[in-house]
Design a protein around this nucleic acid. Structure first.
Lengths: 302, 302
DNA sequence: CAAGGTCATAACATACGCTTATGACCCAGT
DNA sequence: ACTGGGTCATAAGCGTATGTTATGACCTTG
């Protein structure tokens, strides 16, 4: 497979033509004179031509050498163009990052991660798309994003992922709800029977809840389905029912007494937050930087 | 100096795009699958790009890979053109040989050598220029010839050479010349005093004669100077004087009694026949073949 | 569900390609 | 005429690149 000529050698040959001596050309390209001598000799052997007239006072091209240099110029130019093009693409990969994240992650976790990324790598520009887990998969297949964040137990097919955080769902009710003053946890069956305000089917939040109930042989029939955590919080505050949302989303409301968190016995509402990217390709450099930022500054919470 | 991309790798990448799998591409370019895998991985690392989507059912280009393949095509094409051009030149060097030889060599030695060369390498075309030693040097500086044959003691400056044969000058006279019936050799002084028919100054033959006489403190003052051996033989036969010519040139005339060779005591008239070529460059392949032929088939005579 | 394809990884051998050290040679300036 | 500074070539040593074979993990397909 050593059918291709040595581009380094050809560049060196051109440098010799320019410099008038092997020594100076060698210095110019940053190798020693013996290395250059050898390289040129091998090039001549490979081509079967005498390219250079070596004298004790310098080295000049033979006519054949001049012809080869003439042919080498377009080859080297075309190759340089390839390098430049690749560099441009690589720089995009290093300085641009298209992220898709589920609503919950985008609202409550990503801001801190992105700020950490900006602190460590100020020249990475991030564009963020909000999407539920299924839309994330679809975005990958359209190659519209480089990195996704999804919640839920499973890694979507065709993707690989790394768990970067955990989020626990909590049951919240309005302060005047009957559960608001219980000292003992409710049980899973009670939750399943109650009026529930839940996220729509297809969201990671909803999936975790359903799976957790299913482990008790229970199923969910929500009183209301809403498409955002904010809407759920409003509905719960209005007394429509008990809401199930990520703990991070209601930290302030619970602290301020506007909502009350209700403990549920025997129900595992923890869910993994995963960074995911296509299995067939490697994560882009910018994506790797973001993951490094996620891991580093204590951003991972539960 | 490892600034240039791996052309083998790029060609391999294109092969992968074509074949749809790394294994088949590897087979296509004649390496094993692991070697190809590594090569491609290194290429990706060097460019900082993800070029391929590797799946368990084959490998396809990413958009970035497609772009790189697009850039690689002109680079590979330009490089192939270089190879083709160099091959053409090399084939000329292998199949063409421009030879310059002094009159004596061209007439009496080269025919046998060329016939031997033709026997061993029928596809080498030889063009022959007759020239005296000085003209040979000049032909090299004009790059008009690849190989020269000169007589005489010295190797011309700027050239390197190898002795390929020896030729001995002999003194010949007409059958009715006083020296024709001597049993004892004449001496050098007698030769210097006699009427001599010699080659012109600047010829190798003449130089050898003058040097040989000079070693005895004698100098040459020819009665007649002629520009060809044939002319000298005619002049000697006409009785103008004693001729000094290469032994090979008069073999037939002496055998047939038309001329008589006269021995000369204490005069070394041997001269080297040298193949010469520029010191600054190496001998062309075709030239090497001719020298091999000269050495091999007993062509070297004295 | 087994078989045959995909690619990746590991262990090893070889050979390339650079370095430093040294030598031969020529030209120019003293 | 000679020495000094330039040229290039050769030799020995060494690290690494790059190939090989052997093996394993993983889909996809019949």
């Amino acid at each position: 497979m050593t059918q291709w000529p040595d581009l380094d050698g050809l560049a060196l040959l051109a440098a010799v033509a320019e410099a008038g001596s092997i020594s100076r050309a060698a210095e110019g390209v940053g190798i020693t004179q013996p290395a250059a001598s050898l390289r040129l000799k091998r090039l001549e052997a490979a081509l079967g031509l005498t390219l250079l007239e070596r004298t004790t006072s310098g080295t000049r091209l033979t006519p054949e050498g001049a012809a080869v240099v003439g042919w080498a110029a377009p080859a080297l130019d075309a190759t340089r163009e390839l390098i430049d093009g690749a560099r441009l693409l690589a720089s995009r990969r290093r300085h641009h990052l298209r992220v898709a994240a589920s609503l919950t992650v985008a609202e409550y976790l990503l801001p801190a991660w992105l700020s950490a990324l900006h602190a460590s790598d100020p020249d990475i520009a991030v564009s963020l798309h909000m999407a539920n887990s299924y839309e994330v998969e679809e975005s990958f297949s359209r190659r519209a994003i480089d990195l996704g964040f999804v919640e839920g137990a499973r890694v979507p097919p065709g993707l690989q992922g790394r768990t970067v955080a955990h989020d626990e769902l909590v049951v919240v009710v309005a302060p005047d709800h009957p559960w608001a003053h219980r000292r003992r946890p409710i049980d899973a069956a009670a939750l399943a029977r109650a009026d529930i305000v839940a996220r729509e089917a297809g969201s990671g939040t909803r999936e975790v809840l359903e799976r957790a109930l299913a482990r008790h042989g229970l199923s969910l029939s929500p009183a209301v389905e809403l498409a955002s955590t904010t809407a759920i919080k409003a509905a719960v505050a209005d007394g429509i029912g008990a809401g199930v949302v990520g703990r991070a989303a209601v930290t302030r409301e619970v602290a301020e007494g506007r909502l009350v968190a209700v403990a549920v016995a025997d129900l595992d509402l923890r869910r993994a937050i995963r960074a995911v990217w296509p299995r067939a390709t490697s994560l882009s450099p910018a994506g790797r930087r973001l993951l490094a930022s996620v891991r580093a500054p204590g951003a991972a919470r539960d």
